[in-house]
């Protein structure tokens, strides 16, 4: 090697910066500076931190709470129905005499489980579907996307009424059903990004190496849509929690033996006129808190990914 090796260039990018907007180029760092930049922007966002803290607290409340605050949520206690908050029942009881605080914990478990499970299913299915549709394009794309269009047009409530007539609703069934309708949004988003990404030159480079479609999709396209994916997954959780609550409220969902926030509100709403506020509002607050917290996180993630793009 004579020539270029002799250039001081070999010192790496630390020497300075050319290119159009790279004065802000990161200092030559160790490891994945992109991820760090995203994290830094995320952490700088106060709402995101609040959101994350709320989620942690609610999760702890639902899953660790019952260990600390023991209540009987199986057998109705008809001697102490509709009691207001007091020493022995911190948030009062409902019409069956169940302790509301304890019931909020149990009810939250299913909400959170469903939320995460649905988001996971929707994201995985959506990614694969969208990436395949976008990557193969042409007829494949046309057909797959028409399927999405049709699926979008099925009314959700109808689907659930129909399903609850045929099957005995269980947590698993709910997750599957909610998953079935939730993958559509990520599928569309991922397809859109894939369309833009697949014409990038690095994807073509893989072709010239003799690389196949699977490598392109899994090594290049999907990792590069991660930003979008993470953001939508977050919104998906919030969405699932909300839909679940709505369904429960409308009475399509788990049997009364399995409480959820939605069914608690449905239950309590009839007594609202009697002034039994504790049977409705605590559950409502928790739902709103959870949904808002996930939305904060999603927004912040979106911002951080955009910052990365800008600084690139």
């Amino acid at each position: 090697m004579t020539g270029p090796a002799a250039l001081p260039l070999s010192g790496g990018p630390g020497t300075g910066s050319v290119g159009t907007t790279s004065t802000d180029a990161d200092q030559p760092g160790v490891g994945n500076s992109a991820v760090r930049l995203i994290l830094r922007t995320f952490v700088e966002n106060k709402l995101a931190i609040i959101g994350a803290a709320v989620i942690v607290l609610i999760t702890a409340f639902c899953f660790i709470g019952p260990q600390v605050y023991h209540t009987d949520q199986v057998d109705p206690n008809l001697l102490s129905t509709n009691l207001g908050p007091r020493g022995s029942y911190l948030l009062g009881t409902d019409n069956n005499g169940f302790d509301i605080l304890g019931r909020l914990m149990i009810g939250g478990q299913s909400s959170i489980e469903v939320g995460f499970a649905v988001a996971a299913i929707a994201t995985v299915v959506g990614i694969l579907y969208g990436a395949i549709s976008g990557f193969f394009g042409k007829a494949v794309d046309v057909v797959l996307m028409r399927v999405v269009d049709v699926a979008f047009s099925i009314p959700l409530v109808f689907l659930f009424i129909f399903a609850s007539r045929i099957f005995q609703p269980t947590l698993g069934l709910l997750i599957v059903l909610l998953g079935l309708v939730s993958w559509l949004v990520p599928a569309r988003l991922v397809r859109g990004e894939t369309l833009a990404l697949k014409v990038r030159e690095y994807v073509q480079a893989v072709r010239t190496m003799g690389g196949g479609s699977a490598r392109i999709i899994f090594r290049h396209l999907i990792p590069n849509t991660m930003g979008t994916i993470v953001v939508t997954a977050t919104f998906q959780v919030a969405n699932a929690v909300l839909i679940l609550a709505t369904l429960q409220y409308l009475g399509f969902g788990l049997p009364p033996s399995e409480p959820t926030w939605g069914s608690m509100i449905a239950n309590g709403i009839t007594y609202l006129q009697d002034g039994y506020w504790w049977e409705v509002y605590p559950a409502l607050v928790l739902i709103v808190l959870t949904v808002v917290a996930f939305n904060f996180i999603g927004d912040a993630l979106q911002d951080s990914f955009q910052v990365r793009l800008r600084q690139r």
Partner: peptide, 14 residues
């Protein structure tokens, strides 16, 4: 191509 070994674990945007 005249780049140092340190380049291996860096990302293109650097």
């Amino acid at each position: 191509v005249g780049l140092g070994q340190g380049a291996m674990s860096r990302y293109p945007h650097e």
